[in-house]
Amino acid sequence: MSHLQLFDGDLPVEQITNAWYDDFRLSNFGAIITFVGVVRDEDGIDGLSFDIYEPILNSWFDTWQEKAKENGAIVLMAHSKGDVLNHTSSYIAAVCSPKRRVALELIDEFVEDFKASAPIWKYDIIDGQRKYAKERSTAIDGAGLLS
């Protein structure tokens, strides 16, 4: 099973998290911490939509896997492509580690860096149209090289 999984539409949360648990509970990890992001009903949206640039997402994720490995841990992630309606999930991240402290710290860093660096673009779905979530987006470190 790939540690990074992409799905069209909303995530089958139980299927993903149960599979992770089944796969990794036998690997002698003492802590498996899962973060599930759920699309909230706010500002009149019907849901969110996502574009992903997979080549750079893969290399970003591989760098994180190496960092986790240095701590005896692994990172897992699932994300949606396309439309995800309110009250369903578009993003799951997890860390498995021998001890809870490493997992608690890594999940925080992993999710924060994901928000700042992963090449994923978010759009609000309003009246069937996609509107780029510009105000909630973050310029990637190093932006402005061509300005």
Binding site: G37, F50, Y53, I56, H79, S90, Y91, V111, F114, K115, A116, S117, A118, P119, I120, W121, K122, A133, K134, R136, S137, T138, A139, I140, D141, G142, A143, L145, L146
Partner: peptide, 22 residues
């Protein structure tokens, strides 16, 4: 992050606007 690079035939440049996964 370095602008001082030489481009060659076949290279691909990608522009990545601000991101917001999750």
């Amino acid at each position: 992050k370095d602008k001082q690079i030489t481009l060659k035939d076949g290279d691909k440049i990608s522009l990545l606007p601000p991101v917001c996964g999750g």
